[in-house]
């Protein structure tokens, strides 16, 4: 399979490559462009990006793997990152976690068999006044209760079923 990005992504990349006093700065922005389009920065993408910057693939992967948000392999359509840090702990995120595990029938770090959900824990996401909370893909869901989580998960399930994965 050859590595192909959309014209839009290519354009965005081109803009980023010429945007900084030192080209290297475009690395994170380029990661994001690829990540947004492919849901991950896989090996093919790493090699492609290495070419863009004239870096070794090792260097690209070294930077990539430093940042937790950047995935190397694609995950579920909805990646649920439940905050496990202190404020959410004090506000009993563990109840939400058990609930999510029951609802999705996965453990932390796993993706549902239908590929719709990935469940993971995250460090503090800066939503401590509205704990417990989770980030699903790019969006924050705050002041979580079991009921709210059930509602959300069911909504996403429906969405995934109607729109296909």
């Amino acid at each position: 399979m050859s590595f192909e990005l959309s014209e839009k992504a290519k354009k965005e990349i081109e803009r980023e490559l010429g945007r900084y006093p030192v080209k290297d700065s475009a690395l994170l922005p380029v990661f994001w462009i690829v990540h947004n389009e492919r849901g991950c920065v896989d090996d093919e993408a790493v090699e492609y990006i290495a070419g863009l910057f004239d870096f070794s693939a090792a260097k690209v992967l070294g930077v990539l793997s430093f940042y937790w948000m950047l995935r190397r392999k694609s995950a579920g359509k909805y990646v649920i990152s439940l905050c496990k840090n202190i404020s959410c702990y004090l506000r009993e995120y563990e109840n939400i976690l058990t609930h999510l595990q029951d609802l999705l029938k996965v453990q932390v770090g796993e993706t549902t068999k239908d590929g719709v959900f990935t469940l993971q824990l995250a460090e503090c996401l800066g939503s401590c006044g509205t704990a417990p909370m989770m980030m699903v893909n790019n969006r924050y869901y705050e002041d979580l209760t079991r009921e709210r989580v059930t509602e959300l998960v069911e909504g996403w399930r429906k969405e995934a079923m109607t729109n296909g994965k």
Partner: peptide, 11 residues
């Protein structure tokens, strides 16, 4: 890059 746990003012 506000990341200190319990901190959400810059947000």
């Amino acid at each position: 890059d506000e990341s200190e746990p319990g901190t959400f003012k810059d947000r």
